[in-house]
């Protein structure tokens, strides 16, 4: 079973959001990393880049495939996880920790309320894999 931490918000594109004040930390879920397989490359935006919710902000590549990643919330990137350049496998081994991708200053923090809860996301992935 995929790990779905209670305290996070989830998108239907399989990203997670951890809210810290005005900031959102974003990564991809355990379910997503498991479907992708070995992550060998992560392409991330630069600090200062601005995105609207649902916009693509980078990509995750396995040996076989490229998957875009979408920001679940709008805002400006304040920092990215530089360590993924050398250790993209952190996305597989620790998707909610060392595998985080970007930190954003949210322009409309209310957007998180429209994301899925852990329970809702779990139901969503169950339905998707059936």
């Amino acid at each position: 079973m995929a790990n779905v931490p209670e305290d996070l918000h989830y998108s239907k594109d399989h990203e997670w959001v951890r809210v810290e004040g005005n900031e959102a930390i974003i990564g991809i879920t355990d379910y997503a990393q498991n479907s992708l397989g070995d992550v060998v490359y992560v392409e991330l935006p630069k600090a200062g880049d601005e995105f609207s919710a649902s916009e693509s902000f980078g990509s995750v590549e396995s040996v076989k495939a490229v998957s875009e990643i979408f920001t679940p919330v709008s805002g400006v990137v304040t920092s990215i996880n530089e360590s993924l350049a050398d250790e993209p496998e952190s996305v597989n081994s620790d998707p909610y920790g060392a595998g985080w991708m970007v930190r954003m200053r949210m322009s409309s923090p209310g957007e998180v309320d429209s994301l899925l809860t852990a329970a809702e996301y779990e139901d969503f992935t169950k339905a998707e894999s059936e």
């Binding site: 397989g37 070995d38 060998v40 396995s62 040996v63 076989k64």
Partner: peptide
């Protein structure tokens, strides 16, 4: 199957 549980990299190596 695209890959088995060990994953593409491990299968290749």
């Amino acid at each position: 199957p695209v890959q088995y549980p060990a994953g593409t990299i491990e299968e290749h190596l």
